[in-house]
Design a protein around this nucleic acid. Structure first.
Lengths: 209, 209
DNA sequence: CCTCGGTTACTAAGCGCTTGCTTAGCGTGT
DNA sequence: ACACGCTAAGCAAGCGCTTAGTAACCGAGG
């Protein structure tokens, strides 16, 4: 299916990448179509050869980013049936995602209000999917008696919140790498839900016995 | 000093309140001076009778909000010399602040890029002050041997992050009240730094023995 | 008491500029 | 020959902010 990318496809991608950088730095409303075109090395009109509107660029970025985030959470859960192992894996993967993709992640979480009504509905479905994964995970751990938390739904919210806010404070030249943050947040997720960390492998892929 | 507020002062306050609502809903760049004036029930030109520019409105909101946040953290720490009690009090107070003042708090954390260079420097000082309080708190708890965390600086960052992100997800018609969130986050702060919760009073003001 | 000059709090109108987006046309590769 | 990828130029609308002017209120003089 995926053949050699045509010139047009490469230009589309350049415009999208330029939009990601601009939107995450200055916000959707703080970015002009001339900013995007200029950063992609093109004239202002080039944007409209490949995309319907500035808002469509935002939607394409947001949909792909949310799908990736959802996939990341599902993949982390799928690695083990054990809720304790799952919460550590999700804590790590979700944190690493928001650190590594912090530019996109800022757009995902702070530019929702700039989406059109229809596009917003599509994105909301993906966000509900992520939220459901986390709520189910905490609920299962509590049901299995391996989590100890005074409010499972709020714990799931706090777990998501903790990861998402990394996109706000993370700096590429900061104190920590995405991997270090992932290590710390795997442990933090276990503390948050009140799980016993013993027996949980430190890194994905390593054996637990 | 504070006499009966003049008509002009009341109008200034109305404009500021309208700006808070508009900025937090649509962002600084998504808000027009006509939006603000209209919400305050005035003509567009009225904004400039009381304020130099739209950016000055943002700065006034941001400076007052950051000062309040810093005061809140300092007050929570001042209630006890015990690091364990302090981290519970700060976890509670910081969370309650961001839930209760979620509109202002969104502006504080998501509109920093819209400030002028000079104004940004002033705000950064206040933010550094908050960060220092939290880092000092975790460092002291670790030094006293009552906290157990693999990375004290990252723990302080996560503690701040947890509170700040409440401003993003909190809804007035949501599942939890600011007080409920405060209760949960007091406990969560203790878990985050690895402190033993026994002996910490559940609510500020109640006796611990 | 009323009147009057000055101050205060505000608005109607609009200026210069930027915005998102369109149109008409040109150069290039096949 | 002709479709494709792109640009130069520009339009209508909306932006932050300014200017000129007006209605409402003030203490002081008659």
């Amino acid at each position: 299916m995926t053949t050699t990318p045509s010139r047009a496809e490469a230009t589309r991608a350049r415009l999208l990448e330029a939009a990601v950088v601009a939107f995450s730095e200055k916000g959707f409303h703080g970015t002009t179509t001339r900013d995007i075109a200029g950063a992609a090395g093109m004239s202002p009109a080039a944007v409209y050869v490949h995309h319907r509107s500035k808002e469509e660029l935002l939607f394409l970025i947001s949909r792909q980013g949310h799908q990736q985030a959802l996939d990341t959470v599902r993949a982390a859960r799928a690695r083990t049936p054990d809720p304790v192992g799952q919460v550590a894996a999700v804590g790590r993967a979700f944190a690493e995602f928001h650190a590594h993709h912090h530019t996109v992640a800022r757009i995902l979480n702070y530019e929702l209000a700039a989406l059109s009504e229809e596009h917003r509905a599509t994105i909301d479905e993906l966000r509900t999917g992520i939220d459901r994964e986390l709520r189910d995970l905490v609920r299962e751990g509590v049901a299995a008696g391996v989590f100890d938390t005074p409010d499972p739904a709020l714990a799931a919210t706090a777990l998501a919140s903790l990861g998402i806010d990394i996109a706000r404070w993370y700096r590429e030249d900061g104190e920590w790498t995405p991997t270090q943050i992932g290590d710390y947040y795997a442990d933090l997720a276990l503390r948050l839900v009140g799980a016993d960390a013993s027996g949980v492998s430190g890194r994905p892929g390593s054996s637990s016995c």
